[in-house]
């Protein structure tokens, strides 16, 4: 058995396989850069992407999987052999231990990456002030959103307050921001902010006579004395100004299409007349919208173990270097 492990864990084979992996990665990088439509920035991490459908362009990845698998087998055999030798000799030197931890961590991270590549998933979602079901997390809505700017006006930070109602009825308030996702299930599930803004969803108009406000939401009829007013949509005029498309439905069944320019400077066109009263555009009704990435990586515990082993290996190697010095 030990002989077989020694053959599988041959150091020379490991070195050559390592170089083969490096060559494959280098070729892969060039291919990915050559075909940006096939491989856009942030393209999915999952391995299914490369097999649905199988393409000649992905040949580098198929070769990489083969070389990485052989490399991992060699690595595991090498680790086993070292551990057996350490136990037999009842001696573990600091440098050997550090090297062992690095190799263990590498093997773990490779396996974790494969696991994530097969079983991991991600999708993008736009969360707003209405609850939205996010699989395996619950119903989420945005409570507030704030964008902070640098003095030159560029974006510094986006802070989003989320209200999460889990399937069991528990409610949880979480804050997300750039580099500060909200984590669930021991870090396996994440909600990561990608962008946040306040989007117009309706408008506020006021009656000119007394300033009484009316909040108009799309396709929700609003009763005004002798009829109903409906906001059909807000679109951009060819002159570059936002325009509200309104429908005035009178009690007698007649209807009238009205347009209101949503720009205070265009004063004459910001007013409409309904049932003898004049109404004026006041402000947009906005809703906070957070564009998020919902990510599931089942391999996070393995990655954390790899991280821990690497950190330990690094510390041991530093201690060994210092003692040697």
């Amino acid at each position: 058995m030990l002989k077989l492990i020694c053959i599988l864990g041959n150091r020379y084979a490991g070195f050559v396989l390592g170089m083969a992996v490096i060559l494959n990665l280098a070729i892969g990088s060039l291919v990915m850069d050559r075909y940006p439509k096939t491989y856009p920035p942030f393209f999915p991490n999952n391995l299914g992407f490369f097999f649905d459908p199988v393409q000649a362009k992905h040949a580098w990845l198929y070769a990489l999987l083969v070389t990485f698998s052989l490399f991992t087998v060699n690595l595991i055999a090498c680790i086993t052999e070292t551990v057996v030798r350490m136990i037999q000799a009842r001696d573990a030197r600091l440098k050997q231990l550090a090297a062992l931890l690095f190799h263990l961590a590498l093997a773990l991270i490779l396996i974790a990456h494969l696991y994530d590549g097969v079983y991991g998933s991600e999708y993008r979602a736009a969360l707003d002030d209405q609850p939205q079901d996010i699989q395996d997390i619950g119903a989420i809505r945005v409570e507030s959103l704030q964008n902070h700017q640098h003095p030159d006006g560029s974006l510094k930070e986006t802070e989003v307050a989320l209200l999460i109602r889990h399937d069991d009825g528990r409610e949880l308030r979480e804050r997300i921001a750039y580099n500060e996702p909200t984590l669930f299930d021991g870090g396996r599930r994440q909600i990561i902010i990608q962008q946040g803004e306040h989007r117009p969803k309706g408008l506020i108009i006021t009656r000119v006579a007394d300033g009484a406000p009316l909040n108009l939401l799309p396709h929700e009829p609003h009763r005004i004395e002798s009829g109903h007013l409906v906001l059909r949509e807000v679109s951009m005029h060819k002159m570059g100004m936002p325009v509200a498309d309104l429908l005035w439905l009178r009690k007698d069944g007649s209807r009238q299409q009205l347009f209101m320019v949503l720009n205070e400077r265009a004063s004459r066109h910001t007013e409409v007349e309904l049932a003898g009263e004049r109404y004026r555009y006041k402000a947009p009704l906005t809703t906070p919208v957070a564009f998020v990435l919902v990510r599931y990586n089942p391999a996070i515990p393995l990655v954390l173990a790899g991280l821990l082993l690497t950190s330990l290996g690094t510390i041991l190697l530093i201690v060994w270097q210092r003692r040697r010095a």
């Binding site: 992996v21 990665l25 280098a26 892969g28 990088s29 850069d33 580099n179 990561i192 990655v303």
Partner: peptide, 27 residues
């Protein structure tokens, strides 16, 4: 990367070449 983009590794040239460097000098 995990906190900002949800992934500690992506198929991005810089990340791929960083992995190459680490593996190369480790080798």
């Amino acid at each position: 990367g995990y906190l900002a983009w949800g992934a500690y590794f992506m198929w991005d040239p810089k990340l791929v070449w960083s992995a190459i460097l680490w593996l190369y000098y480790g080798n």
